[in-house]
């Protein structure tokens, strides 16, 4: 049985002009110990998926859907009980470099807070554990007495990871964890994450707009566009044989040092209005392979190869 299942999730934000359908019918699952990546451009809804799982949506709500953790439904749970799930079973790593850590408390204190809130540990024990965790993410444990601004961007991010692992959660959601870091630091952090994930057998949902990161770190990838899933599959399959036009465009927009062309393929247009969603396939205004049917009917997700799913009228089914 998968660790986490998300069924038909719809999360809308309230705006003056009507609800913005940030996530509009998303279903997927995550297995134990699996690393799942969610990719897509800004505003496609990937962060909203993460926030919906953690029930941290502000200015909007989950209007429909079922999310279960190990069989237990999460969305209807009373918030007091759900607080026990938070961090103990699912934790969140956000962009530390951009203020994910509270600037007025020491790193150690913030990790200790997570521990003492959920367990009966005393402060001293918790502090020791915090130091061990920092060691695990390759930070000198004496830095626990430092404030966030005294650490480099990469160290801060690793400290956040350490904090996320404090209670041995089953699932860690990492939302753009390396976006603000330079490439070298990025690689370090990703390698660390991959290593920890394997060692501790933790499931990860890694969210990024950067497909190359996901390619290195994940087992499976979901591509989202305008609140819907357009393609989902094993990382190898997806990279070698992308089926959805959007995925193809994403992959080809990376400058390849070995390729012969000198220009970047750019995807024309911009993402659709989430309030006034177009009929039919959400991608049709920008799709190079658009047909009449695309404008009229929304494509459903079909399995085109084992464990490889696509939502596009142009792609034929597996059988």
């Amino acid at each position: 049985m998968p660790l986490l299942t998300v069924e038909n999730l719809r999360t809308y934000y309230f705006t003056e002009k009507g609800p913005a359908k940030a996530v509009d019918g998303v279903s997927f699952s995550v297995d134990k110990g699996e690393s799942l990546g969610i990719a897509g451009e800004s505003g496609c809804g990937k962060s909203t998926v993460a926030l919906s799982i953690m029930r941290l949506i502000k200015g909007g709500k989950v209007v429909q859907g079922n999310i279960t953790l190990d069989g237990t439904p999460l969305l209807d749970m009373p918030i007091r009980d759900f607080r026990r799930i938070r961090w103990e079973r699912i934790s969140l790593v956000s962009q530390a470099a951009m203020g994910g850590l509270n600037p007025v408390y020491r790193i150690g204190d913030q990790i200790v807070e997570a521990i003492t809130t959920h367990t009966k540990s005393k402060k001293a024990e918790a502090w020791k554990r915090a130091e061990e965790l920092l060691k695990q993410v390759e930070i000198d444990p004496s830095r626990a007495s430092n404030y966030p601004h005294e650490l480099s961007g990469g160290m801060r991010q690793r400290a956040m990871i350490a904090m996320a692992l404090a209670l041995n959660p089953e699932l860690v959601i990492a939302d753009e964890p390396t976006t603000a870091l330079d490439v070298v630091t990025q690689a370090q952090v990703l390698k660390l994450m991959r290593g920890l994930q394997r060692e501790l057998n933790v499931s990860i949902i890694l969210i990024s707009h950067d497909l190359s990161i996901l390619g290195q770190t994940c087992d499976r990838i979901i591509i989202m566009y305008a609140g819907k899933i357009v393609e989902m599959g094993d990382v190898q399959a997806l990279f070698r044989e992308p089926r959805h036009p959007y995925t193809k465009a994403l992959l080809s927009s990376f400058p390849d040092i070995k390729s012969e062309s000198r220009t970047l393929t750019v995807l024309p247009g911009s993402p659709p209005d989430l309030i006034d969603t177009p009929s039919g396939c959400r991608f049709y205004p920008r799709c190079p392979q658009v047909q009449d049917i695309c404008k009229a009917k929304e494509p459903t997700i079909i399995e085109v190869a084992p464990k490889h799913y696509v939502a596009c009228h142009q792609v034929k089914g597996a059988s």
Partner: peptide, 24 residues
């Protein structure tokens, strides 16, 4: 962001309100 982190950590409302938000 750190307020979001605090909430994700499962802290109680009053703790977030006073020790994280107001303190800053």
């Amino acid at each position: 962001q750190y307020i979001l982190t605090a909430e994700a950590k499962g802290l109680s409302e009053s703790r977030i309100k006073y020790r994280h938000a107001a303190r800053n």
